[in-house]
Design a protein around this nucleic acid. Structure first.
Lengths: 239, 239
DNA sequence: AAGCGAACTTTGTGATCACATTTGATCGAT
DNA sequence: ATCGATCAAATGTGATCACAAAGTTCGCTT
Protein backbone atom coordinates (compact mmCIF):
# COMPACT_ATOMS: atom_id res chain seq x y z
CA UNK A 1 0.00 0.00 0.00
CA UNK A 2 2.67 2.50 0.97
CA UNK A 3 5.38 2.73 -1.63
CA UNK A 4 7.87 4.69 0.33
CA UNK A 5 7.22 6.95 3.26
CA UNK A 6 3.49 6.73 3.99
CA UNK A 7 2.86 10.48 3.51
CA UNK A 8 1.86 12.22 6.70
CA UNK A 9 -0.52 15.08 6.12
CA UNK A 10 -1.72 17.46 8.78
CA UNK A 11 -5.48 17.12 8.86
CA UNK A 12 -7.66 20.00 9.97
CA UNK A 13 -11.28 19.98 10.91
CA UNK A 14 -13.51 20.64 7.95
CA UNK A 15 -15.95 23.49 8.20
CA UNK A 16 -19.44 22.39 7.33
CA UNK A 17 -19.88 25.28 4.93
CA UNK A 18 -16.84 24.46 2.79
CA UNK A 19 -17.15 21.76 0.19
CA UNK A 20 -15.09 18.63 0.45
CA UNK A 21 -13.17 19.54 -2.69
CA UNK A 22 -12.21 22.90 -1.18
CA UNK A 23 -11.09 21.26 2.01
CA UNK A 24 -9.00 18.70 0.14
CA UNK A 25 -7.52 21.46 -1.97
CA UNK A 26 -6.54 23.55 1.04
CA UNK A 27 -5.15 20.54 2.86
CA UNK A 28 -3.02 19.41 -0.05
CA UNK A 29 -1.90 22.94 -0.78
CA UNK A 30 -0.74 23.39 2.77
CA UNK A 31 0.97 20.02 2.67
CA UNK A 32 2.91 21.01 -0.44
CA UNK A 33 3.75 24.42 0.97
CA UNK A 34 5.05 22.95 4.21
CA UNK A 35 7.09 20.31 2.47
CA UNK A 36 5.09 17.45 3.92
CA UNK A 37 5.09 15.86 0.47
CA UNK A 38 8.56 15.35 -0.86
CA UNK A 39 9.31 16.36 -4.45
CA UNK A 40 9.31 13.40 -6.78
CA UNK A 41 6.97 11.44 -4.58
CA UNK A 42 4.32 9.79 -6.74
CA UNK A 43 0.79 10.59 -5.64
CA UNK A 44 -2.25 8.47 -6.40
CA UNK A 45 -5.81 9.63 -6.31
CA UNK A 46 -7.09 6.63 -4.43
CA UNK A 47 -4.18 6.72 -2.01
CA UNK A 48 -4.79 10.32 -1.05
CA UNK A 49 -8.51 9.72 -0.90
CA UNK A 50 -7.97 6.97 1.63
CA UNK A 51 -5.61 9.09 3.72
CA UNK A 52 -8.03 11.99 3.75
CA UNK A 53 -11.05 9.79 4.29
CA UNK A 54 -12.97 10.97 1.24
CA UNK A 55 -13.94 9.52 -2.10
CA UNK A 56 -11.53 9.80 -5.03
CA UNK A 57 -13.69 12.42 -6.76
CA UNK A 58 -12.81 15.55 -4.74
CA UNK A 59 -9.16 14.49 -4.71
CA UNK A 60 -9.15 14.38 -8.50
CA UNK A 61 -10.48 17.90 -8.77
CA UNK A 62 -8.13 19.27 -6.12
CA UNK A 63 -5.13 17.69 -7.83
CA UNK A 64 -6.13 19.12 -11.18
CA UNK A 65 -6.52 22.56 -9.64
CA UNK A 66 -3.14 22.38 -7.95
CA UNK A 67 -1.59 21.21 -11.20
CA UNK A 68 -3.09 24.21 -12.96
CA UNK A 69 -1.36 26.43 -10.39
CA UNK A 70 1.95 24.68 -11.05
CA UNK A 71 2.03 23.35 -7.52
CA UNK A 72 1.95 19.81 -8.87
CA UNK A 73 3.17 18.26 -12.06
CA UNK A 74 1.28 15.80 -14.19
CA UNK A 75 3.68 13.44 -15.83
CA UNK A 76 3.13 11.78 -19.17
CA UNK A 77 2.27 8.54 -17.41
CA UNK A 78 -0.50 10.65 -15.91
CA UNK A 79 1.24 10.31 -12.59
CA UNK A 80 1.07 13.32 -10.31
CA UNK A 81 3.97 14.50 -8.18
CA UNK A 82 5.54 17.54 -6.57
CA UNK A 83 7.97 18.92 -9.16
CA UNK A 84 11.62 18.38 -8.55
CA UNK A 85 13.83 21.37 -8.01
CA UNK A 86 17.01 22.27 -9.85
CA UNK A 87 19.47 25.03 -9.10
CA UNK A 88 18.60 26.85 -12.32
CA UNK A 89 14.87 26.53 -11.73
CA UNK A 90 15.29 27.80 -8.21
CA UNK A 91 17.16 30.79 -9.52
CA UNK A 92 14.48 31.48 -12.12
CA UNK A 93 11.78 31.30 -9.46
CA UNK A 94 13.58 33.79 -7.25
CA UNK A 95 14.14 36.24 -10.07
CA UNK A 96 10.53 35.89 -11.18
CA UNK A 97 9.46 36.55 -7.60
CA UNK A 98 11.46 39.75 -7.49
CA UNK A 99 10.17 40.95 -10.84
CA UNK A 100 6.54 40.14 -10.07
CA UNK A 101 6.48 41.38 -6.50
CA UNK A 102 8.33 44.58 -7.33
CA UNK A 103 5.74 45.28 -9.96
CA UNK A 104 2.85 44.42 -7.64
CA UNK A 105 4.27 46.54 -4.83
CA UNK A 106 4.76 49.55 -7.08
CA UNK A 107 1.23 49.23 -8.37
CA UNK A 108 -0.17 48.90 -4.87
CA UNK A 109 1.87 51.68 -3.30
CA UNK A 110 -0.53 54.57 -4.04
CA UNK A 111 -3.37 52.67 -2.40
CA UNK A 112 -1.64 52.01 0.92
CA UNK A 113 -3.16 54.31 3.54
CA UNK A 114 -2.22 54.90 7.15
CA UNK A 115 -4.47 52.12 8.40
CA UNK A 116 -2.83 49.52 6.23
CA UNK A 117 0.61 50.85 7.02
CA UNK A 118 -0.14 50.38 10.70
CA UNK A 119 -1.25 46.83 10.00
CA UNK A 120 2.00 46.21 8.18
CA UNK A 121 4.03 47.48 11.13
CA UNK A 122 1.99 45.25 13.44
CA UNK A 123 2.73 42.23 11.25
CA UNK A 124 6.41 43.10 11.35
CA UNK A 125 6.30 43.17 15.13
CA UNK A 126 4.50 39.83 15.16
CA UNK A 127 7.29 38.43 13.03
CA UNK A 128 9.83 39.67 15.56
CA UNK A 129 7.91 37.90 18.30
CA UNK A 130 7.78 34.67 16.31
CA UNK A 131 11.47 35.08 15.61
CA UNK A 132 12.25 35.34 19.31
CA UNK A 133 10.17 32.24 19.91
CA UNK A 134 11.98 30.41 17.12
CA UNK A 135 8.70 29.44 15.49
CA UNK A 136 9.89 29.16 11.90
CA UNK A 137 6.55 28.03 10.57
CA UNK A 138 4.85 31.07 12.03
CA UNK A 139 7.56 33.30 10.62
CA UNK A 140 6.89 32.01 7.14
CA UNK A 141 3.18 32.40 7.52
CA UNK A 142 3.45 35.96 8.82
CA UNK A 143 5.99 36.85 6.19
CA UNK A 144 3.54 35.82 3.52
CA UNK A 145 0.81 37.80 5.23
CA UNK A 146 3.07 40.86 5.27
CA UNK A 147 3.71 40.71 1.54
CA UNK A 148 0.09 39.89 0.76
CA UNK A 149 -1.04 42.87 2.79
CA UNK A 150 0.96 45.16 0.55
CA UNK A 151 -0.23 43.80 -2.77
CA UNK A 152 -3.90 43.51 -1.83
CA UNK A 153 -4.00 47.26 -1.27
CA UNK A 154 -4.44 47.50 -5.03
CA UNK A 155 -8.19 47.06 -5.51
CA UNK A 156 -7.74 45.88 -9.10
CA UNK A 157 -5.82 42.81 -8.19
CA UNK A 158 -4.28 40.81 -11.00
CA UNK A 159 -0.86 39.73 -9.86
CA UNK A 160 -1.56 38.12 -6.50
CA UNK A 161 -2.63 34.75 -7.94
CA UNK A 162 0.52 34.68 -10.03
CA UNK A 163 2.67 35.53 -7.02
CA UNK A 164 1.03 32.83 -4.95
CA UNK A 165 1.74 30.35 -7.72
CA UNK A 166 5.43 31.16 -7.38
CA UNK A 167 5.25 30.88 -3.62
CA UNK A 168 3.68 27.49 -4.03
CA UNK A 169 6.48 26.32 -6.27
CA UNK A 170 9.11 27.61 -3.87
CA UNK A 171 7.09 26.31 -0.93
CA UNK A 172 9.03 23.32 0.32
CA UNK A 173 12.32 25.15 -0.10
CA UNK A 174 11.20 28.39 1.53
CA UNK A 175 10.60 26.31 4.60
CA UNK A 176 14.22 25.35 4.64
CA UNK A 177 15.21 28.93 4.00
CA UNK A 178 13.21 30.08 6.99
CA UNK A 179 14.82 27.52 9.27
CA UNK A 180 18.24 28.73 8.19
CA UNK A 181 17.18 32.31 8.62
CA UNK A 182 17.64 32.05 12.35
CA UNK A 183 21.36 32.58 12.00
CA UNK A 184 21.44 35.22 9.31
CA UNK A 185 18.56 37.45 10.26
CA UNK A 186 20.60 40.58 10.31
CA UNK A 187 18.79 43.41 8.57
CA UNK A 188 15.09 43.95 8.97
CA UNK A 189 14.11 44.77 5.42
CA UNK A 190 10.48 44.96 6.42
CA UNK A 191 11.26 48.09 8.38
CA UNK A 192 12.92 49.59 5.33
CA UNK A 193 9.86 48.68 3.30
CA UNK A 194 7.40 50.32 5.67
CA UNK A 195 9.59 53.43 5.74
CA UNK A 196 9.59 53.55 1.94
CA UNK A 197 5.83 53.12 1.92
CA UNK A 198 5.39 55.98 4.35
CA UNK A 199 7.38 58.19 2.03
CA UNK A 200 5.57 56.76 -1.00
CA UNK A 201 8.99 56.09 -2.46
CA UNK A 202 8.46 53.39 -5.09
CA UNK A 203 12.11 52.91 -5.90
CA UNK A 204 13.15 52.51 -2.28
CA UNK A 205 10.31 50.05 -1.81
CA UNK A 206 11.47 48.00 -4.78
CA UNK A 207 15.04 47.96 -3.53
CA UNK A 208 14.20 46.86 -0.01
CA UNK A 209 11.66 44.33 -1.31
CA UNK A 210 14.25 42.77 -3.61
CA UNK A 211 16.74 42.69 -0.74
CA UNK A 212 14.13 41.06 1.49
CA UNK A 213 13.43 38.34 -1.06
CA UNK A 214 17.11 37.75 -1.75
CA UNK A 215 17.85 37.49 1.96
CA UNK A 216 14.99 35.07 2.39
CA UNK A 217 16.61 32.74 -0.08
CA UNK A 218 20.15 33.79 0.72
CA UNK A 219 21.29 30.22 0.99
CA UNK A 220 20.91 30.00 -2.77
CA UNK A 221 24.12 31.98 -2.78
CA UNK A 222 25.86 29.11 -1.07
CA UNK A 223 25.73 26.53 -3.84
CA UNK A 224 26.72 23.57 -1.74
CA UNK A 225 23.80 24.08 0.62
CA UNK A 226 21.27 24.39 -2.15
CA UNK A 227 22.84 21.45 -3.88
CA UNK A 228 22.56 19.25 -0.85
CA UNK A 229 18.91 20.05 -0.54
CA UNK A 230 18.26 19.43 -4.19
CA UNK A 231 19.96 16.10 -3.83
CA UNK A 232 17.66 15.34 -0.93
CA UNK A 233 14.80 16.23 -3.23
CA UNK A 234 16.07 13.98 -6.00
CA UNK A 235 16.85 11.19 -3.56
CA UNK A 236 13.19 10.58 -2.85
CA UNK A 237 12.85 9.15 -6.35
CA UNK A 238 15.59 6.55 -6.21
CA UNK A 239 14.42 3.45 -4.31
CA UNK B 1 -33.06 25.97 -21.84
CA UNK B 2 -31.13 28.85 -23.32
CA UNK B 3 -31.16 31.88 -21.07
CA UNK B 4 -29.85 34.37 -23.54
CA UNK B 5 -27.74 33.69 -26.59
CA UNK B 6 -27.37 29.92 -26.91
CA UNK B 7 -23.54 29.96 -26.78
CA UNK B 8 -21.96 28.90 -30.03
CA UNK B 9 -18.67 27.11 -29.57
CA UNK B 10 -16.40 26.00 -32.36
CA UNK B 11 -16.06 22.26 -32.07
CA UNK B 12 -12.94 20.50 -33.30
CA UNK B 13 -12.40 16.83 -33.90
CA UNK B 14 -11.10 15.08 -30.82
CA UNK B 15 -7.90 13.15 -31.17
CA UNK B 16 -8.27 9.61 -29.91
CA UNK B 17 -5.14 9.93 -27.77
CA UNK B 18 -6.29 13.00 -25.85
CA UNK B 19 -8.63 12.54 -22.94
CA UNK B 20 -12.11 13.99 -23.04
CA UNK B 21 -11.25 16.35 -20.20
CA UNK B 22 -8.29 17.71 -22.13
CA UNK B 23 -10.39 18.18 -25.23
CA UNK B 24 -13.09 20.00 -23.29
CA UNK B 25 -10.45 22.14 -21.62
CA UNK B 26 -8.85 23.13 -24.92
CA UNK B 27 -12.21 23.78 -26.52
CA UNK B 28 -13.43 26.01 -23.72
CA UNK B 29 -10.09 27.76 -23.46
CA UNK B 30 -10.18 28.59 -27.13
CA UNK B 31 -13.77 29.73 -26.82
CA UNK B 32 -12.86 32.13 -24.04
CA UNK B 33 -9.78 33.35 -25.86
CA UNK B 34 -11.75 34.03 -29.04
CA UNK B 35 -14.51 35.79 -27.20
CA UNK B 36 -17.12 33.21 -28.15
CA UNK B 37 -18.38 33.32 -24.58
CA UNK B 38 -19.37 36.81 -23.52
CA UNK B 39 -18.16 38.08 -20.14
CA UNK B 40 -20.86 37.84 -17.51
CA UNK B 41 -22.57 34.98 -19.26
CA UNK B 42 -23.55 32.34 -16.72
CA UNK B 43 -22.24 28.89 -17.54
CA UNK B 44 -23.71 25.64 -16.31
CA UNK B 45 -21.95 22.33 -16.20
CA UNK B 46 -24.83 20.39 -17.65
CA UNK B 47 -25.48 22.99 -20.31
CA UNK B 48 -21.92 22.88 -21.57
CA UNK B 49 -21.87 19.12 -21.34
CA UNK B 50 -24.89 18.92 -23.59
CA UNK B 51 -23.41 21.36 -26.10
CA UNK B 52 -20.15 19.46 -26.22
CA UNK B 53 -21.82 16.08 -26.23
CA UNK B 54 -20.04 14.73 -23.17
CA UNK B 55 -20.98 13.88 -19.63
CA UNK B 56 -20.87 16.58 -16.96
CA UNK B 57 -17.77 15.09 -15.37
CA UNK B 58 -15.05 16.26 -17.78
CA UNK B 59 -16.73 19.65 -18.02
CA UNK B 60 -16.51 20.05 -14.26
CA UNK B 61 -12.78 19.37 -14.24
CA UNK B 62 -12.11 21.62 -17.22
CA UNK B 63 -14.03 24.47 -15.63
CA UNK B 64 -12.15 24.11 -12.39
CA UNK B 65 -8.85 24.12 -14.23
CA UNK B 66 -9.78 27.23 -16.19
CA UNK B 67 -10.90 28.91 -13.00
CA UNK B 68 -7.53 28.12 -11.42
CA UNK B 69 -5.88 29.91 -14.35
CA UNK B 70 -8.11 32.94 -13.82
CA UNK B 71 -9.75 32.41 -17.19
CA UNK B 72 -13.09 31.90 -15.47
CA UNK B 73 -14.54 33.19 -12.24
CA UNK B 74 -16.45 31.15 -9.70
CA UNK B 75 -19.05 33.31 -8.05
CA UNK B 76 -20.30 32.83 -4.53
CA UNK B 77 -23.48 31.27 -5.86
CA UNK B 78 -21.03 28.73 -7.33
CA UNK B 79 -21.99 30.06 -10.72
CA UNK B 80 -19.20 30.13 -13.28
CA UNK B 81 -18.73 32.94 -15.77
CA UNK B 82 -16.15 34.80 -17.82
CA UNK B 83 -14.97 37.68 -15.63
CA UNK B 84 -16.19 41.12 -16.54
CA UNK B 85 -13.69 43.74 -17.56
CA UNK B 86 -13.17 47.19 -16.14
CA UNK B 87 -10.95 49.95 -17.42
CA UNK B 88 -8.72 49.74 -14.36
CA UNK B 89 -8.44 46.00 -14.55
CA UNK B 90 -7.60 46.22 -18.21
CA UNK B 91 -4.85 48.67 -17.43
CA UNK B 92 -3.48 46.43 -14.69
CA UNK B 93 -3.45 43.46 -17.02
CA UNK B 94 -1.53 45.38 -19.68
CA UNK B 95 1.05 46.62 -17.21
CA UNK B 96 1.43 43.15 -15.73
CA UNK B 97 1.92 41.81 -19.24
CA UNK B 98 4.73 44.26 -19.89
CA UNK B 99 6.43 43.56 -16.58
CA UNK B 100 6.18 39.79 -16.91
CA UNK B 101 7.07 39.52 -20.58
CA UNK B 102 9.96 41.94 -20.29
CA UNK B 103 11.35 39.80 -17.52
CA UNK B 104 10.78 36.58 -19.44
CA UNK B 105 12.35 37.98 -22.60
CA UNK B 106 15.43 39.19 -20.75
CA UNK B 107 15.84 35.83 -19.10
CA UNK B 108 15.41 34.00 -22.40
CA UNK B 109 17.65 36.25 -24.46
CA UNK B 110 20.96 34.48 -23.81
CA UNK B 111 19.44 31.18 -24.95
CA UNK B 112 18.19 32.40 -28.34
CA UNK B 113 20.47 30.99 -31.01
CA UNK B 114 20.56 31.58 -34.75
CA UNK B 115 18.09 28.81 -35.47
CA UNK B 116 15.47 30.24 -33.20
CA UNK B 117 16.10 33.74 -34.45
CA UNK B 118 15.42 32.51 -37.99
CA UNK B 119 12.18 30.94 -36.78
CA UNK B 120 11.20 34.24 -35.22
CA UNK B 121 11.82 36.10 -38.47
CA UNK B 122 9.77 33.47 -40.31
CA UNK B 123 6.89 33.99 -37.90
CA UNK B 124 7.13 37.72 -38.42
CA UNK B 125 6.84 37.19 -42.17
CA UNK B 126 3.87 34.91 -41.67
CA UNK B 127 2.24 37.66 -39.68
CA UNK B 128 2.78 40.07 -42.56
CA UNK B 129 1.11 37.59 -44.90
CA UNK B 130 -1.85 37.18 -42.55
CA UNK B 131 -2.00 40.95 -42.26
CA UNK B 132 -2.21 41.34 -46.02
CA UNK B 133 -4.97 38.72 -46.09
CA UNK B 134 -6.81 40.54 -43.31
CA UNK B 135 -7.05 37.35 -41.26
CA UNK B 136 -7.19 38.89 -37.79
CA UNK B 137 -7.62 35.59 -36.02
CA UNK B 138 -4.49 34.23 -37.66
CA UNK B 139 -2.63 37.40 -36.74
CA UNK B 140 -3.47 36.94 -33.09
CA UNK B 141 -2.49 33.30 -33.14
CA UNK B 142 0.83 33.98 -34.86
CA UNK B 143 1.53 36.91 -32.61
CA UNK B 144 1.18 34.64 -29.60
CA UNK B 145 3.43 32.08 -31.27
CA UNK B 146 6.05 34.77 -31.84
CA UNK B 147 6.13 35.79 -28.20
CA UNK B 148 6.01 32.22 -27.00
CA UNK B 149 8.93 31.33 -29.24
CA UNK B 150 11.05 33.91 -27.44
CA UNK B 151 10.22 32.89 -23.90
CA UNK B 152 10.48 29.15 -24.47
CA UNK B 153 14.12 29.58 -25.41
CA UNK B 154 14.77 29.61 -21.69
CA UNK B 155 15.04 25.92 -20.80
CA UNK B 156 14.16 26.57 -17.15
CA UNK B 157 10.72 27.88 -17.92
CA UNK B 158 8.76 29.39 -15.05
CA UNK B 159 7.01 32.44 -16.37
CA UNK B 160 5.23 31.13 -19.46
CA UNK B 161 2.24 29.71 -17.57
CA UNK B 162 1.84 33.03 -15.78
CA UNK B 163 2.02 34.93 -19.06
CA UNK B 164 -0.54 32.65 -20.65
CA UNK B 165 -2.84 33.28 -17.70
CA UNK B 166 -2.71 36.99 -18.47
CA UNK B 167 -3.31 36.35 -22.15
CA UNK B 168 -6.37 34.33 -21.22
CA UNK B 169 -7.74 37.16 -19.13
CA UNK B 170 -7.13 39.65 -21.90
CA UNK B 171 -8.30 37.13 -24.47
CA UNK B 172 -11.71 38.41 -25.56
CA UNK B 173 -10.45 41.98 -25.66
CA UNK B 174 -7.24 41.22 -27.54
CA UNK B 175 -9.46 39.94 -30.29
CA UNK B 176 -11.02 43.36 -30.57
CA UNK B 177 -7.61 44.95 -30.43
CA UNK B 178 -6.43 42.84 -33.34
CA UNK B 179 -9.44 43.73 -35.45
CA UNK B 180 -8.72 47.41 -34.86
CA UNK B 181 -5.07 46.87 -35.56
CA UNK B 182 -5.76 46.85 -39.30
CA UNK B 183 -5.82 50.59 -39.39
CA UNK B 184 -3.02 51.43 -37.05
CA UNK B 185 -0.42 48.86 -37.92
CA UNK B 186 2.34 51.33 -38.52
CA UNK B 187 5.55 50.21 -36.92
CA UNK B 188 6.67 46.61 -37.00
CA UNK B 189 8.01 46.21 -33.49
CA UNK B 190 8.71 42.56 -34.15
CA UNK B 191 11.46 43.59 -36.52
CA UNK B 192 12.93 45.81 -33.81
CA UNK B 193 12.77 42.88 -31.42
CA UNK B 194 14.57 40.46 -33.70
CA UNK B 195 17.22 43.10 -34.33
CA UNK B 196 17.69 43.54 -30.58
CA UNK B 197 17.92 39.79 -30.16
CA UNK B 198 20.56 39.53 -32.84
CA UNK B 199 22.63 42.10 -30.98
CA UNK B 200 21.81 40.43 -27.66
CA UNK B 201 20.70 43.85 -26.45
CA UNK B 202 18.41 43.21 -23.51
CA UNK B 203 17.40 46.80 -22.99
CA UNK B 204 16.47 47.36 -26.64
CA UNK B 205 14.50 44.11 -26.56
CA UNK B 206 12.58 45.27 -23.50
CA UNK B 207 11.82 48.62 -25.07
CA UNK B 208 10.53 47.22 -28.34
CA UNK B 209 8.61 44.47 -26.55
CA UNK B 210 6.86 47.01 -24.34
CA UNK B 211 6.10 49.13 -27.40
CA UNK B 212 4.72 46.07 -29.18
CA UNK B 213 2.42 45.23 -26.30
CA UNK B 214 1.28 48.82 -25.91
CA UNK B 215 0.56 49.08 -29.61
CA UNK B 216 -1.36 45.83 -29.51
CA UNK B 217 -3.70 47.36 -26.98
CA UNK B 218 -3.35 50.88 -28.25
CA UNK B 219 -7.07 51.42 -28.24
CA UNK B 220 -6.87 51.43 -24.46
CA UNK B 221 -5.46 54.90 -25.00
CA UNK B 222 -8.72 55.94 -26.55
CA UNK B 223 -10.95 55.75 -23.52
CA UNK B 224 -14.24 56.02 -25.38
CA UNK B 225 -13.50 52.92 -27.45
CA UNK B 226 -12.50 50.83 -24.47
CA UNK B 227 -15.46 52.12 -22.58
CA UNK B 228 -17.86 51.14 -25.31
CA UNK B 229 -16.50 47.63 -25.36
CA UNK B 230 -16.64 47.33 -21.59
CA UNK B 231 -20.23 48.44 -21.74
CA UNK B 232 -20.88 45.74 -24.27
CA UNK B 233 -19.29 43.32 -21.85
CA UNK B 234 -21.43 44.51 -18.99
CA UNK B 235 -24.56 44.56 -21.15
CA UNK B 236 -24.60 40.79 -21.46
CA UNK B 237 -25.59 40.58 -17.82
CA UNK B 238 -28.57 42.91 -17.79
CA UNK B 239 -31.65 41.11 -19.09
C1' DA C 1 -54.21 42.99 -9.27
C1' DA C 2 -50.08 42.70 -6.38
C1' DG C 3 -47.43 40.41 -2.85
C1' DC C 4 -45.90 36.17 -0.99
C1' DG C 5 -45.25 31.36 -0.05
C1' DA C 6 -45.05 26.55 -1.55
C1' DA C 7 -43.99 23.14 -4.99
C1' DC C 8 -41.22 22.05 -8.82
C1' DT C 9 -37.06 22.44 -11.53
C1' DT C 10 -32.41 23.23 -12.14
C1' DT C 11 -27.75 22.84 -10.69
C1' DG C 12 -23.48 21.74 -8.12
C1' DT C 13 -21.46 18.22 -5.30
C1' DG C 14 -20.00 13.81 -4.24
C1' DA C 15 -20.16 8.64 -4.34
C1' DT C 16 -20.15 4.37 -6.78
C1' DC C 17 -19.47 1.65 -10.79
C1' DA C 18 -17.36 0.15 -15.18
C1' DC C 19 -13.58 -0.01 -18.33
C1' DA C 20 -9.10 0.57 -20.53
C1' DT C 21 -4.38 1.26 -19.68
C1' DT C 22 -0.48 0.80 -17.02
C1' DT C 23 2.41 -1.15 -13.40
C1' DG C 24 4.33 -4.80 -10.85
C1' DA C 25 5.19 -9.59 -9.95
C1' DT C 26 5.64 -14.27 -10.77
C1' DC C 27 6.84 -17.97 -13.53
C1' DG C 28 9.27 -19.98 -17.24
C1' DA C 29 12.99 -20.24 -20.79
C1' DT C 30 17.67 -19.70 -22.16
C1' DA D 1 21.13 -16.83 -12.62
C1' DT D 2 19.22 -13.42 -15.64
C1' DC D 3 16.06 -11.86 -18.92
C1' DG D 4 11.52 -11.79 -20.81
C1' DA D 5 6.61 -12.82 -21.18
C1' DT D 6 2.23 -13.36 -19.12
C1' DC D 7 -1.09 -12.56 -15.61
C1' DA D 8 -2.94 -9.91 -11.75
C1' DA D 9 -3.37 -5.75 -9.11
C1' DA D 10 -3.66 -0.87 -9.33
C1' DT D 11 -4.78 3.45 -11.34
C1' DG D 12 -6.84 7.20 -14.18
C1' DT D 13 -10.85 8.28 -16.77
C1' DG D 14 -15.51 8.88 -17.51
C1' DA D 15 -20.57 7.86 -16.86
C1' DT D 16 -24.54 7.39 -13.98
C1' DC D 17 -26.95 8.01 -9.77
C1' DA D 18 -28.33 10.29 -5.44
C1' DC D 19 -28.89 14.30 -2.70
C1' DA D 20 -29.09 19.00 -1.01
C1' DA D 21 -29.26 23.76 -2.01
C1' DA D 22 -30.47 27.48 -4.98
C1' DG D 23 -33.50 29.31 -8.41
C1' DT D 24 -37.95 29.58 -10.75
C1' DT D 25 -42.72 29.38 -11.37
C1' DC D 26 -47.25 28.88 -10.21
C1' DG D 27 -51.08 29.58 -7.33
C1' DC D 28 -53.15 31.41 -3.23
C1' DT D 29 -54.30 35.16 -0.20
C1' DT D 30 -55.26 39.91 0.77
Amino acid sequence: MDKRSPIKIRLTERDASTTITQWVYQTLRQAVMNGQILPGRALTIRGLAEILGVSPMPVREALRQLAAENALEIQGNRRVMVPRMTAMKFNELCEARIALESHAATRALPYIDATRLAQLRQLDQDIDVAFEAGDTEEIGSLNQAFHRKIYTANPHQITLPLIESIWLQLGPFMRLANSLLDENYLVDHHREMTAAIEKQDALALQMSLAADIRDGVAFAGTPELLHSFIEQSAASSTP
